[in-house]
Simulated assay, not measured.
Amino acid sequence: MNLAEREATVRRLLEREPPPVVPPDLYGEVVRRGGRMLRRGRAVRRLLWLALFGAVVVFAVWAATARPWVEPPSETTPLVTDW
């Protein structure tokens, strides 16, 4: 079905004298589904914030223990030249 056919179908539906009948339980179902979608989205956002917080804590603990900004100690001893 291309765009012109869809537009023609919609026009025919809208030009009918009595508007199409909407099922009576449609509103309740839409509200229920919308509420579920909102709760699911809120839960996903909370999980993402929790994962971000966990990553920050893990990075902070690693940085505090590994101290990557400190120069590592020398592996060899310097040569003794003044004997």
Rank of each mutant, 00 (worst) to 15 (best):
T9L: 13
A60Q: 03
L47C: 05
P20I: 02
W49M: 15
D82H: 11
G35C: 14
V30H: 07
A60H: 02
A64E: 06
V58F: 03
E71R: 03
V57M: 00
L79S: 10
P78E: 01
V80H: 10
P72K: 04
T81I: 01
L50R: 04
R12D: 02
G34E: 15
A64W: 05
R45G: 07
F53N: 09
L38G: 14
P23G: 08
R42G: 11
W49F: 04
D82C: 13
Y27M: 09
R32P: 05
L52K: 02
V56L: 04
V10H: 08
V70W: 12
V70Y: 08
M37Q: 09
R39G: 15
W62Q: 10
E7K: 11
A55R: 01
V80G: 10
L38H: 11
V30P: 12
E15M: 06
R16K: 09
A60G: 04
V22S: 12
M1T: 06
S74V: 00
E5T: 08
E5M: 12
R16A: 12
F53M: 03
P20N: 03
V10F: 14
S74P: 03
P24G: 12
P20A: 13
L52T: 03
G54W: 01
E5W: 08
P72T: 01
G54M: 00
A51D: 00
T65N: 07
V56A: 05
P19Q: 10
R39I: 00
L38M: 15
G41I: 00
R12E: 08
T76D: 09
R12V: 01
P18R: 03
W83K: 11
N2E: 12
A4F: 15
R45L: 05
Y27E: 11
V31R: 09
A63E: 13
E7A: 15
V44L: 07
A51E: 00
F53L: 06
R40Q: 09
R12C: 06
G54N: 05
A64G: 06
A43E: 01
G54D: 02
L26E: 15
T81S: 11
A8Q: 15
A43C: 11
R67C: 10
A4Q: 09
R16D: 14
G41N: 07
P73M: 01
S74E: 06
S74M: 05
V80P: 05
T9I: 13
N2P: 15
V70D: 10
T76V: 04
E29S: 07
W83R: 15
A66C: 12
P73H: 00
M1F: 06
G34A: 07
A4R: 07
E29N: 08
V58L: 03
R40T: 09
R36G: 14
L79M: 07
A4P: 08
G28E: 04
T81V: 04
G41E: 03
A55Q: 01
F59Q: 05
L52M: 04
A55P: 00
M37Y: 11
V44W: 06
A55I: 02
L48K: 02
V80N: 13
T76P: 06
P72N: 08
V10P: 14
V58I: 03
V44H: 11
M1V: 03
V80I: 05
A43W: 01
V31G: 10
P73W: 01
V57E: 00
D82A: 11
T76E: 06
L79A: 12
V10G: 14
R46W: 02
P72C: 05
V31I: 10
D82S: 11
S74T: 01
P68A: 12
R42L: 10
G35K: 14
S74Y: 01
